[in-house]
Design a protein around this nucleic acid. Structure first.
Lengths: 346, 346
DNA sequence: TTGAAAGCGTTACCAG
DNA sequence: CTGGTAACGCTTTCAA
């Protein structure tokens, strides 16, 4: 046991509180947990706690009770507003239940995801939320062995680990192509990221390709540039390349509103009118899509809602753990709504 | 898909690993910590670990050793790219040292900050980073009593709790006013949030007012609208109000690039040219400031660097804890650079 | 409603 | 280099 240096006073323990209040440790523990205790006892204990500035040790509690209050969440990027919105939704649902979020940013790396999962598993989280359906084999094995309820978010996995809350990025992209085709555009391009690690981006590209073929709109015109998350800075160069290769393009569908915005800025720089000279569509319904000029036609996805639904799925799993001792829990698969939002740009 | 009910077996413990490897628990513990062990022993232990899928329990380790591997960080908003960049910078410095981030979003509420500090303190974090210099009395007391090294970020507190890494938002705002005045603008307005809780925003307003007076540029023209973080959606309405009240305004300084962007969009909607008819400046040097059209004149702040410096300050404090038993640590105060970046909009 | 004892799974400490 | 033993601070369990 490490001993505190002579200079530092040891922080108060539950036994100190008990002594000051003139009760046993157990009574303090019960008061803290909000369980049965007479009013007078409760008051005395609370006063002792305040006086000493006592803060219970979560590690000791977790070890003793066999359960932590952690829930782990892994997102590919915290700086993407859609994922931080998802985290907010999760927080809103879980925090009132006394659960704490252990947030991790995988930076679109599956190896990093694996490392983070391993690390977080050490804290015995009650549940784990991952983004996407693609993971390393080791990650899957770790998760499976741990027995911790898992939610995969932002996609509908063909081979889910456990629960999932998401939508088909392929289908959503196809719907956008249909929207553009419905507007009369025939020569439609696509701007996306170059990374093979962003499965949701790849699925949108795939949806674009599939629907192009289904509608007989000719060969794909796809430019892929930059690492995920592809941002507004990538949109401009990507648009430039697209126009260089296929100058007669009539509409461009982008993997996200960020790249769409960058693409539109590039058009403005060239004196091209959007959508008159070329139409541009985004994905995600980020704030910028409704704020910029022209406003951006996009696919709205309820990112915050994904977080909420994920939280609810977790609470359900935890409740099931409580009741059914032979936890034959039903795997929850929640489909999230999306919709094409027609605006000025396409 | 349901989890296999039969897999309700207890996860493996260190003693299980020890038994399988034919060594003692202590040896397993040492191998895990990367301490002295013969090569053959190490190999056997590692094989046992892999075979069993053993994951060490962090709570037990923390309890036993008296130290966790957590570092707590509280930011006002995870969805603001500047703060998520700061978190990235912190991660980059701390993760290689085996420290894990406990991230909290205070949502610009001091009460929430207090609640989160209390909660995180239960996990015995090695260090805590807060955003800003304003906190509840209870928060200060909690922190003080805990003895945990604290870093206040994004500001230079007059009464620091412990260490700090930031810059003067007042001075930065004054510099921007001087820049605008230097460009010949005399009637300069300000757009900011309405919340009294965003101290950094208030400081920028204060700097604006001070420099206006110092330069004899007349009465302030400030519009305050919306809760922090003030986003692009607030910029438009705020600009509209400013123009309604002071139609002859020549330049507008915004509390952030987000609001500046919204303001510029509003100008475009009205057919006003930026900066010809009215100049607009932002703050923060967010990505959008260099991507949009016109590009936005702003104050660049190295948000990622704030995270890095904070992490380094923490490592310094931890090293000092190790060596000096009489923990008379010197309070570190790191000043972060900022600079006006002249672009097209002003 | 309250208390005493027995761990929880790990690491510190000291022997060997 | 390795192993036994004793905590760590709390909650569970059972008794009063």
């Amino acid at each position: 046991m490490a001993k505190t240096p002579a200079s530092k006073t040891t922080p108060p323990r539950m036994s100190d509180v008990a002594q000051l209040a003139g009760v046993s440790k157990m009574t303090v523990s019960r008061v803290l947990a909000g369980r049965s205790a007479s009013e007078s006892t409760r008051a005395r204990v609370q006063r002792a706690i305040d006086e000493l500035g006592y803060v219970a040790d979560a590690a000791a509690g977790a070890l003793s009770s066999g359960r932590s209050s952690f829930v782990a969440v892994l997102v590919p990027s915290l700086s993407s507003s859609n994922f931080s919105d998802t985290v907010s939704g999760l927080t809103a649902v879980l925090e009132p239940r006394g659960l704490e979020l252990l947030i991790g940013d995988t930076d679109y790396s599956f190896d990093r995801e694996e490392r983070l999962v391993r690390q977080m598993l050490r804290h015995q989280p009650r549940c784990i939320a991952l983004t996407g359906s693609q993971h390393t084999e080791a990650t899957r094995a770790l998760l499976q062995r741990s027995g911790v309820p898992v939610v995969e978010m932002w996609d509908l996995p063909a081979e889910p680990i456990d629960m999932s809350v998401g939508f088909s990025n392929v289908a959503a992209a196809r719907e956008m192509v249909r929207h553009l085709a419905g507007k009369g555009y025939r020569r439609i391009g696509f701007l996306g990221g170059a990374s093979e690690l962003d499965r949701r981006g790849l699925d949108r590209l795939k949806g674009y390709q599939m629907e192009l073929k289904a509608l007989g709109l000719g060969a794909p015109r796809a430019v892929r540039l930059g690492d995920s998350p592809i941002t507004m800075s990538h949109g401009g160069p990507a648009m430039a390349e697209l126009l260089a290769r296929w100058p007669d393009t009539q509409a461009v569908m982008c993997v996200s509103d960020m790249s769409a915005f960058g693409a539109i800025m590039e058009c403005q720089r060239r004196g091209m009118r959007v959508p008159k000279d070329i139409a541009v569509a985004g994905f995600g319904n980020f704030e910028i899509a409704s704020c910029c000029h022209p406003t951006i036609t996009t696919v709205s996805v309820d990112a915050y809602g994904i977080g909420q639904r994920t939280g609810e799925a977790m609470l359900g799993a935890l409740a099931a753990e409580e009741s059914e001792h032979a936890g034959a829990r039903r795997a929850v698969k929640t489909r999230i709504h999306y919709a094409v939002v027609p605006r000025e740009s396409a």
